[in-house]
């Protein structure tokens, strides 16, 4: 991987105001793969009775993670936008625990990337949420034309 791309990828969440607000952090990057995390934060509680994080915060983490995985695809440019994203919520995240997400691009056509992602907390065996999505995919040769 070239150094410039690696640097950009590691700064990904810092460059995006909404990710910065939610204190997202890049944990790991690889070819067409990304792992992000986000701390538990009382400001993003969605269920006041249990202190469980709002589904929308998970959605944001999974969406961002998918975006970074696309950036990490060897044929991709920086520019991508979500076309559609579906998140299935398997269980409530445990309040107080950091949450993680891993996304991978499992297929990329000339103009569309297909992404799968999973989110979990301390219990790594049981995912909190999974996601599948389609994203715009711009290859360098297309970007120029």
């Amino acid at each position: 991987m070239d150094e410039k791309k690696y640097k950009l990828a590691m700064q990904f969440t810092q460059a995006i105001p909404f990710c910065k607000t939610l204190n997202m952090r890049v944990e790991e990057i690889g070819e067409a793969v990304a792992v992000l995390s986000m701390p538990y934060d009382p400001r993003v509680i969605g269920d006041p009775d249990t202190g469980v994080v709002h589904g929308g915060a998970f959605f944001a983490l999974l969406d961002t993670c998918a975006g970074l995985a696309i950036f990490m695809h060897p044929d991709s440019t920086l520019s991508t936008a979500t076309i559609n994203l579906r998140v299935d919520y398997m269980r409530s995240a445990t309040p107080g625990q950091r949450i993680f997400a891993r996304a991978e691009v499992y297929n990329a056509t000339r103009s569309v990337a297909f992404v799968r992602a999973t989110a979990w907390d301390d219990d790594t065996e049981n995912p909190v949420a999974t996601a599948t999505g389609t994203f715009t995919f711009v290859r360098p040769e297309e970007a120029k034309s």
Binding site: P17, F18, C19, G56, F59, A60, D63, T64
Partner: peptide, 16 residues
Amino acid sequence: IGNPILPALHGGATAS
């Protein structure tokens, strides 16, 4: 904001 260059809202903000 999710895209500071455009600028555009973050998809996660819209989903939320």
